[in-house]
Nucleic acid binder design. Sequence first.
DNA 1: ACATGTGTTCCGCTCACCGAGACACCGGCG
DNA 2: CGCCGGTGTCTCGGTGAGCGGAACACATGT
Lengths: 255, 255
Amino acid sequence: MIGRMDAILGLFQSGARTLGGGAPGGGVLGVSEIARRTGISKPAVSRIAAELVERRFLERVEGGLRLGVRLFELGSQAAGPSDLRRLAFATLADLRSATRQTVHLAVLEGSDVVYIEILRSRFTPPLPSRVGGRLPAYATGVGKALLAHLSEDRLAEVLPERLTPVGPRTITDPAVLRRHLEEVRETGFAYEREESAPLIGCAAAPVFDADDRPIAAVSISVHLDAVDLVTLGAAVSTAAHAITRQAVQHQFRAG
Amino acid sequence: MIGRMDAILGLFQSGARTLGGGAPGGGVLGVSEIARRTGISKPAVSRIAAELVERRFLERVEGGLRLGVRLFELGSQAAGPSDLRRLAFATLADLRSATRQTVHLAVLEGSDVVYIEILRSRFTPPLPSRVGGRLPAYATGVGKALLAHLSEDRLAEVLPERLTPVGPRTITDPAVLRRHLEEVRETGFAYEREESAPLIGCAAAPVFDADDRPIAAVSISVHLDAVDLVTLGAAVSTAAHAITRQAVQHQFRAG
DNA sequence: ACATGTGTTCCGCTCACCGAGACACCGGCG
DNA sequence: CGCCGGTGTCTCGGTGAGCGGAACACATGT
């Protein structure tokens, strides 16, 4: 049963949602704990885990199991993210050296945002984001840049009815968020102040494919009183446009 | 059935073994083709694929299926490779700037070598290796550095009885390989000339964990008549030792 | 019109997977 | 020592999930 396997593997990445105090050591879980958290019987977990270990989807280590090298292999070959990453790298690097701040590239996945690439800067305080990590879309700059360009019904099915705060000033009122997204659509870029992490703000802009569907978003994160967000918005917009051009040229399509 | 899913996903990465003429566009396969290549019935493939798409392990694109963003997420969180990568990065970067050549970090996976990190150099001709890609261990420098330090029985179960050539001068005689590995064990580093790719050679050295089990290997690849391999062997050895120290310090264990 | 490819749906049979329970093992505590 | 609470694995009988042949709908090209 694939669903069960999915549930099991999901536990290992759930740590990514708890970005704040997440253990960077890499999640190690035991059979019993997995059984408890997923509701699957212990024998079943043991059996499935054994098979996943055999195929290197999991790895046995002292104290339990963790994600295996096979997933690393498959993940590095996932065409969507990898292509986008390669395609955008030069532009992102330019953006970082121009602004001297940390640059993010992310895609929308369900109601979350998944980080595809992160170019860190010494001049930006360390951020909890990780490549491959998730954050609720409505709480991040990249997320809002993407949400703003969804069709009304797509947006409805993607947005949770309850917005739970992840930063000091996360928007929790859906109506406020709607108004916010409209503004993003008009100005062409999104900004965010302390909605995902304390003292951190960012400006973000969407990247489109040939059919004008949003496929990703770029952002620059800064310590809030360091730089003017509007100036950054301009920079991030031109970078996003540049990546859009390359995406179109390489016939990159939305999933 | 997990085995079937594994077989299906495996098809998408099999391209990595055909490094030479591999399509970098990212493999796109149709249901029928998957059914043909795996021997699974078409309805079964359709069903399994549908479920994998739903869970984002696969992605529907024009013309078929390809690896999905979920694998990217899981892969980036696979603790083993990611930790090793982070741990070794600074040393590898130093090694590259010291030698001005392309640097590889790889682990052993079955009888293949899987590349964990690649730092490319302008001064080395472009190589077919990719992060997450595989190559038979016996045909690469990193592979031989790792094989040399396996126990006799581990080696026996890992080595295929028929060594098929992948480069102009791949070693195909098991006896020759054994002698070669012994030499590697004595000198502490491995070298390779045109065994994996034409005109390319490399020097490689193993990284150990606290129990002296080999966990990874570092290599420097060069255009053959550019640099002396023995000099590189010294450089790569000291780098490997440095990474070993860090691995021990961080209590990194072999899978 | 046909032939040949694609991918999905129907449906009855069967065997692989499930989970309760028992088991072996470990370390802590009295 | 025995007892406990924890871990992970094994046995085993009953059952439902997943299997594949066949038929289907939809694109191609001739």
